[in-house]
Nucleic acid binder design. Structure first.
Length: 597
RNA sequence: GGCUCCGUAGCUUAACUGUAUAGAGUAUCUGACUACGGAUCAGAAGGUUGCAGGUUAGAAUCCUGCCGGAGUCACCA
């Protein structure tokens, strides 16, 4: 039983005894005692004032006295206004530290056969251009959420739905046919996704030129966009693709193959992976049949031109297109199909879509449609929505070339980490191979931590120049602290100091150290809370707090020079446990922590 | 225009289901290196939490109305 639960039960008893009123545990509220006050945990007594019919101070005093009598590990208490600050005995904290240090699964639940399954969809790229900064946020969030859910005892299936078909890839294909001269990633010596991306841009450029000349010929912009020969050709190509035209299919497979190879490299760099990949080309027909089924059941309706619509006005939304007049499917149709396939394949208890907040409306609609179609899980799907990543100059726009390419960014982060390390001479005497690994961890750690520490819902500003900061609330600062602890522990091992157990208690534990242990005991709560909230930011900020506190402590004491052997042992054990929790927490963020750096 | 989300020190941001003097980092200024790893630490300064009301013993947090920003309301995905 943890500290709070034990206190809660006792407090309910005391309040009921003192004031002869039945109460529930919900109104017993704790918070961590603020640093400027003495104590470890604070009870907010305002909720009891009405019951006690006494002043807040008096109520505090009465509860405090009874609590101290009743519970052994309470060493003292003090009252400030309506806050009862409770001090917990040193013995209690030492016991906690002993328990934590021995629990290999501390803070983590392990899934077994009976655990429920959660499917998390993330990444979901189009195959017409390389991944950019926005995808990085998506991938990091998706991966981290999956890790956090695993630590909360879920069976997790990470999935990726690749938008490998549609007008967008036809545009790239067409441009390659027209201007490509048979180029391949090998002949150009660039990644396949970048090559295909170039053709997508080339199409856009040529298309724009056509529109311009049509408009000069007197056509309206709207009309010109529809009538431009290039877009007509692309649409024709899509139709041919859907009809299974052999030549088009062949080209499509080749070019998508290039892209997948490129994506795989990027995913590997970022350290994210998937358990199951779906391709829209394989799932979109499934959606069609489901929509037609809906028409038969009169859930959807057909217009004169044969297009299929859902009327959601009764839900306060608009009418939504599901099948075009030519029978081709749209985004929504595909998501319906994919959902069906997934639930046929896995016993999904919870479905999570990690998708940007520009699609909030889409998922609101999807949820309603799935519900109408009779999928019982439709209503409960979770859209993990996150904000856009902006640059200091403003929004990223592919046309203006202000998109930050994922591969280039990762490379830049690693290069900067390397430069900094070399300047400081940190990696002297380490093999080149190990040095490269460390530099990778640091560069990626900086990027990942920077993105994950921000509340996902918020739009964030990413400054490529300032992002690589090795001070303050950053990944490298945390990694550095971990490396330093490891260094101390290595030295302790060299001196053959055994710090695995705390036996005699012939020393004084400082307030700071008690606070550190208290922070450690909170780790499981943080993991659980992050699971409920789906927020890696919670974990990130917790680790930073732990690291910051430890650094202050570290600065004040020279552990290995400590003359009191018991105290030395204690501090080593505390350091080791903190290092372990840092490592665990960073793992939930998908960030590696080196033993030296 | 309708709906959704956001607005916190110069900048980047925290505050769990309301609760003590709204925490950090960064930039600025001051101080600490015979250093278990200084990529560190201590201190100063920096806030009308967009504005105005309301609910409450108590509001950055909940409600209402404004202001500002973003997104969406596509036969794009």
């Amino acid at each position: 039983m943890n500290l709070e639960t034990e206190l809660k039960i006792a407090i309910v008893d005391i309040v009921e005894y003192l004031y002869q009123t039945q109460i529930t545990q919900d109104i017993v509220q704790f918070q961590k005692t603020k640093k400027e006050f003495e104590g470890d945990i604070t009870l907010v007594v305002f909720p009891f004032v009405k019951i006690s019919k006494r002043s807040p101070e008096q109520t505090c005093q009465e509860i405090g006295e009874n609590l101290k009598d009743k519970i052994e590990f309470i060493s003292d208490f003090n009252v400030i206004k309506g806050f009862l600050n409770i001090s917990i005995s040193t013995d209690f904290w030492l016991q906690q530290l002993n328990v934590i240090s021995k629990d290999k699964n501390f803070g983590e639940k392990v899934a077994d056969e009976n655990s429920d399954l959660m499917m998390i969809e993330y990444s979901s790229p189009n195959t017409n251009k390389p991944l950019h900064l926005g995808h990085i946020r998506n991938n990091l969030l998706g991966f981290s959420i999956a890790e956090i859910q695993k630590a909360n005892g879920w069976k997790v299936v990470k999935t990726n739905i690749v938008n490998d078909r549609g007008i967008h890839i036809c545009k790239s294909m067409l441009a390659w046919q027209l201007f490509g001269n048979g180029e391949t990633p090998e002949t150009r010596k660039i990644k396949g996704d970048h090559l295909v991306g170039e053709y997508y841009v080339a199409f856009d450029k040529a298309y724009k030129a056509e529109i311009k000349s049509l408009m000069e010929g007197g056509m309206s912009e709207e009309e010109a966009k529809k009538e431009a020969p290039l877009i007509k050709q692309a649409q024709e190509m899509l139709l041919k693709w859907e009809q299974g035209d052999a030549e088009i299919r062949q080209l499509w497979q080749t070019m998508n193959g290039w892209v997948y190879k490129g994506f795989d490299e990027t995913y590997k760099e970022l350290g994210v992976d998937f358990d199951k990949i779906y391709y829209e080309s394989e799932t979109y027909t499934e959606g069609k049949s489901k929509v037609e089924e809906g028409v038969e059941k009169n859930i959807f309706y057909k217009r004169e031109d044969d297009s299929v619509w859902a009327d959601l006005t009764s839900d306060g939304l608009d009418e939504k297109l599901l099948l075009r007049a030519d029978g081709t499917s749209v985004y929504m149709t595909q998501d319906i199909g994919t959902a069906k396939l997934r639930y046929d394949e896995y016993p999904i208890k919870k479905m999570v879509y990690v998708v940007g907040n520009e699609q909030n409306y889409h998922f609101q609609v999807l949820s309603i449609l799935l519900d109408k179609l009779g999928f019982e899980w439709g209503k409960d799907l979770v859209h993990f929505s996150y904000g856009m990543v902006e640059l200091p100059e403003g929004k990223m726009k592919s046309r203006e070339g202000t998109v930050v390419d994922a591969d280039a960014l990762v490379a830049e982060m690693i290069a900067t980490a390397k430069n900094t390390s070399e300047e400081l001479g940190k990696l002297d005497g380490i093999s080149e191979k190990e040095a490269n690994e460390i530099v990778r961890m640091v560069g990626l750690g900086a990027l990942k931590y920077f993105i994950l520490k921000v509340d996902p819902r918020k739009n964030m500003t990413f400054n490529p120049k300032e992002s690589i900061d090795f001070n303050g609330n950053t990944g490298p600062f945390i990694q550095y602290t971990h490396a330093r602890i490891c260094s101390v522990l290595r030295k302790a091992d060299e001196q053959k100091i055994d710090y695995s157990n705390l036996n005699n208690l012939q020393f004084e534990v400082s307030e700071k150290e008690k606070y550190l242990i208290q922070l450690l005991t909170e780790y499981p709560n943080i993991v659980q809370q992050a699971g409920l909230e789906f927020s890696p930011a919670l974990i990130a900020n917790y680790i930073y707090e732990l690291v910051k506190e430890y650094n202050q402590f570290y600065h004040d004491f020279y552990i290995l020079r400590e003359e009191n052997e018991d105290l030395k042992t204690f501090r080593l054990l505390l350091s080791e446990t903190i290092a372990t929790v840092i490592k665990k927490g960073m793992k939930l963020l998908g960030i590696g922590v080196p033993d030296r750096m």
